[in-house]
Computed example of a mutant assay.
Amino acid sequence: MNAYLLLSIAIISEVFGSSMLKASEGFRKLLPSIGVVAGLGVAFYSLSLSLQNIPLGTAYAIWSGAGTALTATVGIVVYKESINVKKVLGLLLVIAGVAVMKLATDGAH
């Protein structure tokens, strides 16, 4: 399977698992708690497979950066967390960093 597809699965699974952390209410709700374990389990497994073809630093930067940006977006959209110019700027900087890491990897071969 394509390494970047596996990395995408890892990112989406991590965002799901992290989002379920909030819904689990400190692991007091069963189904969201199961979602945390399943989401993060799939995330780490997929990330480990992607590392067979993507350098560790690049994969982790993309995984954590994209995960951060998407999780913050879920917080804003689903959990109605506040948003302001500073948060938007921070998210844009995270996304820019992820893009630079990807470009650096493409040129490193």
Rank of each mutant, 00 (worst) to 15 (best):
A3C: 11
L5D: 14
L7H: 06
L7V: 10
S8M: 13
S8N: 13
I12E: 10
S13D: 15
E14N: 10
V15A: 02
M20T: 02
K22W: 00
A23R: 01
A23G: 02
S24G: 02
S24T: 05
E25M: 08
E25S: 06
G26I: 01
R28I: 09
L30T: 03
L31T: 04
P32Y: 02
S33L: 04
S33E: 04
I34G: 07
G35Q: 01
V36H: 06
V37F: 09
V37R: 08
V37M: 10
V37W: 06
A38L: 15
L40I: 08
G41F: 10
A43K: 02
Y45M: 07
S46Y: 01
S46Q: 01
L47E: 03
S48P: 09
Q52Y: 11
Q52D: 15
N53Q: 14
I54N: 00
P55Q: 13
L56T: 12
G57S: 14
A59Q: 14
I62C: 13
I62V: 15
W63C: 02
G65M: 07
G67F: 01
G67S: 07
T68G: 04
T68V: 10
A69W: 00
A69P: 00
A72M: 08
V74E: 07
V77S: 03
V78Y: 08
Y79M: 04
Y79P: 00
K80N: 01
V85L: 10
G90M: 02
L91K: 01
L92D: 13
L93C: 15
I95A: 04
A96N: 11
G97C: 10
V98Q: 05
V98F: 03
V98E: 06
V100G: 10
M101I: 07
A104C: 14
A104L: 11
A104Q: 13
A104V: 14
A104H: 14
D106F: 10
A108W: 12
A108Y: 11
A108C: 12
A108P: 13
H109M: 11
